[in-house]
């Protein structure tokens, strides 16, 4: 029995990684949920929007590094993030003008917009592969650890080390700032309120003189900011690869739906629900249980519920369970 070591091991391998991953998913799901609330369709290009934003950020990072600019102990990518957001926002506004606006005017069925977003997904995926290729790209620089595992062991004298990576802390802080800004914007500013009004009741909002094109444009800009931030944080934490970002679509949609499509709070909650279940179910619990159980009962297997390759199955199973028992999600979202 050694609960202290068990807690440290649990935090190191489960809680902290899941917290970071959950924050990344939450930011992604917020983008999906906003588009769903305002534009009323499921945007399949969202994963590739994240990839696109991250690509621009990486290119700007390289540019900054080439000029000799650095952010000290923090990754340079954080300085490049505004450029990434700007580029993505311009691109999204362009796709809205050239592509989505036409279907909005026609009042096309949501499912048509979903298929259109599939086309946009292809184009964005092609552009990203075209510009930056399909390889794994690591672009995190600066200090890697705030506390590294050995220092922690020396400090506390515990058997288990606790490593706190810079990227984890950056993810949590940035995500908290982004969410705080978003909620302040939605709840306190006039534009934010008009967005919520438009989302709740389009006709009534139009009747009271809200300009729909302005609401839509601002939505895209916010989505660009959220998607780019989510993509950059994920890339800093792990690495950037076009295909991985496309695959993030599934957990992100699962988060948004589990929380209730159209509900921002739901998206955040959903992100953490999905992240924690994915990490906990694919983690090999041998070590933690070894510290917790009396020696005679120590498990000899890995005590891993499922291999890590099945992480999609976890988000999927949670999605199905929530849909069957509470079809509008945890925080009553909208339904079309």
């Amino acid at each position: 029995m050694d609960p202290l070591n068990a807690i440290v091991a649990l935090s190191n391998f489960v809680l902290i990684p899941a917290l970071a991953y959950g924050a990344q998913l939450a930011l992604g799901a917020l983008g999906v949920t906003l588009i769903y609330g305002i534009l009323r369709f499921s945007n399949f290009a969202h994963g590739d929007t994240m990839a696109f934003g991250t690509m621009i950020t990486i290119l700007s990072t390289w540019g900054l590094q080439g000029m000799g600019v650095s952010f000290g102990v923090l990754p340079t990518a954080l300085l490049a993030l505004p450029f990434g957001i700007l580029g993505t926002a311009l691109f999204l506004l362009l796709t809205d003008r050239t592509i989505y606006a036409f279907y909005r005017k026609q009042r096309a069925a949501p499912v048509i917009l979903v298929i259109v977003s599939m086309g946009v997904m292809f184009v964005m995926n092609g552009i990203v592969r075209f510009v930056i290729g399909v390889d794994d790209i690591g672009f995190a620089d600066g200090e890697r650890f705030i506390i590294n595992a050995r220092d922690f062991r020396d400090m506390t004298g515990l058997e288990e080390g606790l490593a706190v990576r810079t990227t984890t802390v950056i993810t949590l802080v940035t995500a908290a700032i982004a969410v705080a800004l978003l909620f302040w914007f939605l709840n306190r500013t006039r534009t934010g309120k008009s967005m919520r009004a438009y989302s709740d009741n389009e006709d009534l909002a139009l009747l009271s003189g809200i300009n729909p094109e302005r609401v839509v444009a601002i939505t895209w800009i916010i989505v660009a900011a959220l998607a780019t931030t989510a993509g950059v944080l994920y890339g800093l934490d792990k690495s950037f690869k076009a295909f991985t970002y496309f695959q993030l679509l599934l957990p992100i949609f699962a988060s948004a739906i589990v929380g209730g499509l159209g509900s921002p709070i739901g998206a955040i909650a959903g992100g953490f629900v999905i992240a924690f279940s994915e990490v906990m179910i694919t983690y090999a619990w041998k070590k933690v249980l070894g510290y917790m159980a009396p020696e005679a009962l120590e498990p000899d297997g890995l005590v891993q519920l499922m291999s890590t390759d099945y992480k999609f199955a976890v988000s999927f199973a949670i999605l199905i369970i929530v849909l069957l028992f509470r079809p509008t999600g945890l925080f009553r979202g909208q339904s079309v």
């Binding site: 369709f41 499921s42 979903v114 599934l250 949609f253 739906i257 999605l319 079809p327």
Partner: peptide
């Protein structure tokens, strides 16, 4: 369920 839920469900089952 709704049409886009079916879409996500099928996307997920394919990955699984």
């Amino acid at each position: 369920l709704r049409s886009d839920y079916l879409a996500i469900a099928t996307l997920g089952i394919a990955e699984i």
